[in-house]
Computed example of a mutant assay.
Amino acid sequence: MQLDPYLMFDGTCEAAFNFYRQCLGGEIVMMSRYGEAPGEGMPGCNPDHIMHARLEFDGRVLMASDNHPDYPYEGIKGCSMSLNVASIGEAERVFNALSENGKVSMPLQETFWAVRFAMFEDRFGVPWMVNCEKAG
């Protein structure tokens, strides 16, 4: 069994996934739009908005879409994307890239459990944690 995060955006999914690909590497293996749905498509949806996106990087999967207008967008609440990295250098690189133009709530720093840890919200309003644990 595998558990993969699925994010919802309010019309910014394509921009967010291009940003994540730039920051995290990997490949966007799917980016389908509401206007590409078979038949009459998705009534009421902006045909240019993303119905489903999939980014694969470093053995991980991140999926997302733009919200359907029948379900009002309320932002991302009560959870964070957590990236566990293997080195201080990778923690610094990922933190600097993802937090650019975002809102940092805890700068990248050493903690009692990690050589580097940070918490922030990226420019798309997605909460993130970057964690580089101490050797056990």
Score class of each variant (00 low, 15 high):
3 L>Q: 13
4 D>G: 00
4 D>P: 00
6 Y>G: 01
6 Y>Q: 03
7 L>K: 03
7 L>D: 07
9 F>W: 07
11 G>W: 00
13 C>T: 06
14 E>S: 06
15 A>C: 03
15 A>M: 11
15 A>L: 13
15 A>Q: 15
16 A>W: 01
17 F>M: 13
18 N>E: 14
18 N>K: 14
19 F>W: 08
24 L>I: 13
25 G>W: 12
25 G>R: 11
26 G>A: 10
28 I>D: 02
30 M>P: 01
32 S>H: 07
32 S>F: 03
36 E>V: 02
37 A>I: 05
38 P>S: 09
39 G>P: 05
44 G>S: 03
45 C>V: 01
46 N>F: 00
47 P>E: 07
48 D>F: 00
48 D>M: 05
49 H>D: 11
50 I>S: 00
52 H>K: 02
53 A>P: 07
54 R>I: 09
55 L>Q: 08
58 D>N: 12
58 D>E: 13
59 G>C: 03
61 V>M: 12
63 M>Y: 04
64 A>F: 03
64 A>W: 02
67 N>R: 01
70 D>K: 08
71 Y>E: 03
71 Y>V: 09
73 Y>D: 04
73 Y>T: 02
74 E>S: 15
75 G>S: 06
76 I>L: 12
77 K>C: 04
77 K>T: 14
78 G>V: 07
81 M>S: 09
82 S>N: 10
84 N>E: 10
84 N>D: 07
85 V>L: 12
85 V>R: 10
87 S>V: 04
89 G>N: 14
90 E>V: 09
94 V>D: 03
95 F>L: 08
96 N>L: 09
99 S>K: 14
100 E>Y: 08
101 N>A: 15
102 G>S: 12
103 K>N: 14
103 K>R: 14
104 V>M: 05
106 M>S: 12
107 P>G: 04
107 P>C: 01
107 P>K: 10
108 L>I: 15
109 Q>E: 11
111 T>V: 04
111 T>C: 04
112 F>D: 04
113 W>C: 07
113 W>Y: 15
114 A>Q: 05
116 R>Q: 11
121 E>A: 02
122 D>I: 05
124 F>K: 00
127 P>R: 12
127 P>T: 11
128 W>P: 05
129 M>L: 11
130 V>G: 02
131 N>L: 08
131 N>Q: 04
132 C>V: 08
132 C>H: 13
133 E>S: 13
134 K>S: 14
136 G>H: 12
